[in-house]
Deep mutational scan, measured.
Amino acid sequence: EYSEEELKTHISKGTLGKFTVPMLKEACRAYGLKSGLKKQELLEALTKHFQD
């Protein structure tokens, strides 16, 4: 599980793409985000969540 700060850091540095799909799905579930099946959809959901 990833902390909010850790995820925000990866988003701001542009390194969230280094996460694997299972890692991204886990992060989306942890924050109650609707997650797609594609890596890009997962990245967009997390990025949008933490930028709002």
Rank of each mutant, 00 (worst) to 15 (best):
Q51V: 04
I11Y: 14
G17P: 06
A30Y: 15
H49N: 04
G32D: 07
A30T: 03
Q51A: 10
V21F: 07
K48A: 13
A30P: 03
S35D: 11
K13G: 08
F19P: 10
G14T: 00
E41S: 05
L24N: 01
E6L: 12
S35K: 02
V21Y: 15
T47C: 06
L33E: 03
S35N: 03
F50T: 01
E41I: 02
S12H: 13
H10P: 01
K39F: 01
C28K: 03
Y2H: 06
S12V: 13
F50K: 01
Q51P: 03
E6K: 15
E6G: 10
G32K: 11
L16E: 07
K13I: 07
S12K: 15
S35Y: 06
M23R: 09
T9W: 10
V21Q: 13
L7V: 04
H49E: 03
F19C: 14
H49G: 02
V21C: 05
Q40G: 11
E6S: 14
T47M: 10
E26H: 13
L37S: 11
H49A: 05
Q40C: 10
C28P: 01
A45Q: 13
L33P: 00
T47Y: 12
S12P: 02
Q40V: 12
V21L: 10
F19T: 10
H10R: 09
K13Y: 05
E1P: 01
E41M: 07
E5I: 11
L46H: 00
F19Y: 15
A45P: 02
L43S: 04
Q51W: 02
M23A: 12
E41W: 01
G36C: 04
Q40D: 15
S3H: 08
H49Q: 06
E6M: 13
M23C: 06
Y31Q: 09
L33I: 11
V21T: 14
G17D: 15
K39D: 00
E5W: 08
T20M: 00
K25C: 13
G32R: 07
E1N: 01
K8S: 09
E5D: 12
E4D: 06
S3C: 10
L16A: 05
A27I: 15
K39Q: 08
S12G: 11
K13R: 12
I11G: 01
K8P: 01
A45L: 09
E4P: 09
T15N: 14
A27E: 00
E44G: 09
L42F: 09
E4S: 08
G17L: 09
Q51C: 02
K25I: 15
K25D: 13
T9P: 01
S12C: 11
H49Y: 11
A30K: 15
G32F: 03
T47S: 07
Y31P: 00
L16S: 02
T47V: 07
E41K: 04
L43D: 00
S3W: 08
Q51S: 14
R29T: 06
R29F: 09
T20C: 04
E44N: 12
K48N: 12
S3V: 03
K25E: 13
K25V: 13
A30E: 07
L43M: 15
T15K: 02
S12D: 13
E4I: 13
C28S: 04
T47R: 08
A30Q: 14
G36D: 15
G17T: 11
E41G: 06
Q51D: 09
M23H: 03
Y31M: 13
K18Q: 12
E4K: 09
A27T: 06
T15M: 04
L46G: 03
F50C: 05
L24D: 02
G14E: 05
C28T: 06
M23N: 01
Y2R: 03
K48V: 10
E6I: 14
L43I: 11
K8D: 03
E5P: 06
E41V: 04
L16M: 07
K18H: 11
G36S: 12
K13F: 07
E6D: 13
T47E: 05
F50Y: 05
A45K: 06
H10D: 03
S35T: 15
K34Q: 13
P22L: 06
L46K: 01
T20Y: 00
K38P: 08
K8V: 12
K8G: 07
Q40P: 07
K38S: 10
L16N: 02
L43K: 04
T47N: 04
E5Y: 10
E26V: 09
D52E: 15
M23K: 12
E1G: 12
F50D: 02
T9Y: 14
A27K: 06
L16F: 02
T15G: 04
A45I: 04
G32A: 05
L33F: 02
E44W: 08
Y31K: 04
E6V: 14
L37E: 15
T15L: 05
G14L: 05
I11F: 04
L37K: 14
I11Q: 00
T20G: 09
L46S: 06
K39L: 04
A45R: 08
K38F: 03
L43Y: 02
E5T: 12
L33W: 00
T20Q: 05
T15C: 02
K34W: 03
E26I: 11
G32Y: 04
P22W: 06
G17Q: 14
K34Y: 10
H49T: 02
L46R: 01
S12A: 14
L24K: 00
L16V: 06
K18P: 02
F19E: 06
S35F: 13
Y31C: 13
